[in-house]
Write a protein that binds this DNA or RNA. Sequence first.
DNA 1: TGTTATATATGATGATGATCATCTAATATG
DNA 2: CATATTAGATGATCATCATCATATATAACA
Lengths: 202, 202
Amino acid sequence: MRYPKDHGRQTRRRIVENASYGLRQNGADGLSVVDLMKLADLTHGSFYAYFKSRDALVVEALALAMDRTVAHWLDLMQGLPAEKGFDAVVEAYLSPRHRNNPARGCALPALAADIGRSGPEARRTFAGRLEKMIDIIAGLIPKRSPSDARHAAAGAIATMVGSIVLARAAGDKRLSDALLEAGRQAVRDQTGSATAEASPAD
Amino acid sequence: MRYPKDHGRQTRRRIVENASYGLRQNGADGLSVVDLMKLADLTHGSFYAYFKSRDALVVEALALAMDRTVAHWLDLMQGLPAEKGFDAVVEAYLSPRHRNNPARGCALPALAADIGRSGPEARRTFAGRLEKMIDIIAGLIPKRSPSDARHAAAGAIATMVGSIVLARAAGDKRLSDALLEAGRQAVRDQTGSATAEASPAD
DNA sequence: TGTTATATATGATGATGATCATCTAATATG
DNA sequence: CATATTAGATGATCATCATCATATATAACA
């Protein structure tokens, strides 16, 4: 059937967007092509009209998820001075809400381990966006040379990612909560920032 | 055939041990039962004579891997004063060698994300051993109440895990190396320890 | 030495996987 | 209004999966 002008483009976007949720939830290998298409209310057959392979969709979904996190960070820090912005991002990242919502959360804890086992395309996509994320956090860290700030930003991101990964894996709620709190404290210790209170979400 | 007394037990151990390597390399869902048995030079059929399910083997392999890391840490710190022992563990953990050898490395960066999506049994096994790992690191951190030390230890472990996960995923070698260095610096900043040089391996 | 117990192999089953070829229906364009 | 075009559906292919039933070979034991 001949459909409205860019019906195809919109549908494609819907597939990528829903995949980016589903894959964060279930892992890069956690959903079949049938599952992925079902998320967009489609049957499996047309999949290869949109993507050259399942892997290609995974890469696009990863890129979208990471771009969304970047946008979310920029939104969280908007209008705040650097230090407050940094605290806002950290508090949101290391919140129970973020831990409990992998599908809508940052792709790093959800997918980085899988990307480490993936092909060069996925790794390159990942590396490029991670650099961007490091840049943004580095811009919030005061009193350092640009290079030192990037270093500190990378450390803070690693701490946040590790805390979420471990907090999600720990079956025990007390331990899981303690890991989030330990992560917050560790980031503070790294950057010498003050204690802060901030908003929810990733 | 009737085999030597505990031939079965030894074979079972071989399966679990090889699985613990293979699963760290390829992820908790990355190898089929056929693959897993092939690692122990066996065909697939006898698998269910040893394990009640594939998941049961994953849990055993996870437990073994984590126990080995605990033993390795104790070995690394043996005979050293607390602070030197801590540095030795951190330097070994955040080394290129550990990043490049997931199969023989710590199970946390290799499998924690998968465990977060697994059943309660895997999560409980994971949580129990993670507590042990936190205790060991806490014992190396000076000048704190036991509770503060555990907090700091959890933060340091989270930083190390996040750094390795990201360093493995980053396609770019420069970025990957920078992430390891950033992780080392971050752990130092968290614990106020001095710079250190130490041995390789996980 | 013959029998039995059991470690591992062979092979089957039914589900599910990714990918591809083909069909159909609806709309945009003439 | 007619027709060309194409979004999406149906269905098939062949591979691989976890699990299970059964066979075989051999060492232990009587």
